[in-house]
Amino acid sequence: MLTLQFVPYNDIENLSSNQRVSKLMTLVKKNKIVLMQGRLKPSEETRLIEKTMQEVTKEFKGIELCTVFPQKENNAFKKFFVKMLVGDIEGFTIIGPATIVKDIKRNPDKVELLLSKTRAKRKNGRK
């Protein structure tokens, strides 16, 4: 069974960067596809990739990651205060284990999640 886990922004907003990354990694390593409200900071995204690489094994091949966010606000002053007040809550982030999510194709207005064939075959009892 494929599990899609929703993580609202208020679940992570009070966590440190390392705690956020660890929380997401724990979910993904349980073979869940995470749909997180908002997005991580750029440094947290690289930390997530770093941590992923540290944990690659025969069973865990890595992650597929995609952030989807609306067009950025051009007014830097307004953007700064919106971020100060509510955090980077706009848009959403999809993270899935690479063994399940083969690819996430993103064009500006569309996101396609391609699931791994092997998983579908296994599910149907075939090799």
Partner: peptide
């Protein structure tokens, strides 16, 4: 439009 590209460039901007 791959996340790796967006992440790298986002980090450099930050």
């Amino acid at each position: 439009y791959s996340q790796v590209n967006i992440t790298i460039i986002g980090n450099l901007a930050a």
